[in-house]
Computed example of a mutant assay.
Amino acid sequence: MLTLFFVDDLPTTVGTKYEFANEDANHAIRVLRMQSGGYFNLSDGKGNWSHVEILEVHKKHLTVIVLESGFQEPLETTFTIIQAIPKGDRIKEAIELCTEGGADRIVMWKAARSIGKSDDKIDKLQNTAREASKQSRRFRIPAVVGVATTANIIDEIAKVDLAVVFHESATMKLSEVIVPGAKKIAIIIGPEGGLTDDEIDAFAAAGAKVALMGRPILRSAHAGLAALSAINTALSVW
Rank of each mutant, 00 (worst) to 15 (best):
D119M: 01
I91G: 11
G37Y: 00
S236E: 10
R33A: 02
K134H: 10
F166S: 14
F5P: 00
I178A: 03
L195A: 09
D123Q: 13
T150K: 10
I29L: 12
S175F: 09
G190K: 06
V165R: 11
L212K: 10
D24Y: 14
P74E: 15
V64M: 01
A170Q: 08
A204E: 06
A208L: 12
L10Y: 06
R138C: 05
S69Q: 03
G194L: 00
I157Q: 03
P11G: 06
E96I: 12
E23G: 10
G101L: 12
A226I: 04
E19G: 12
N41G: 13
S50A: 15
K183H: 09
M108T: 06
T63A: 03
E68N: 11
L42H: 09
I189V: 15
G116F: 00
M172Y: 12
S43Q: 07
N22L: 12
A205T: 02
R113Y: 15
I91E: 08
I141H: 03
R137E: 14
I217S: 01
K46D: 14
L2K: 15
A230C: 12
L162F: 05
D155P: 02
H167G: 14
R130G: 04
G15N: 02
F203N: 02
E96F: 13
N232W: 06
K87T: 01
H58M: 04
S220I: 03
S229F: 05
I91H: 02
L55P: 01
Q126K: 08
L195P: 00
V160H: 01
E76S: 15
I188G: 10
Q35K: 14
K121Y: 12
F79A: 08
L218R: 02
N22P: 10
A129T: 11
F5G: 11
A202S: 11
A112T: 07
T196N: 03
K159I: 09
L218F: 13
E176A: 15
A208S: 12
G15M: 05
A112P: 02
K117A: 07
D123H: 10
K121T: 15
M34D: 01
S118E: 13
I187M: 15
A205V: 04
S136A: 11
A205Q: 07
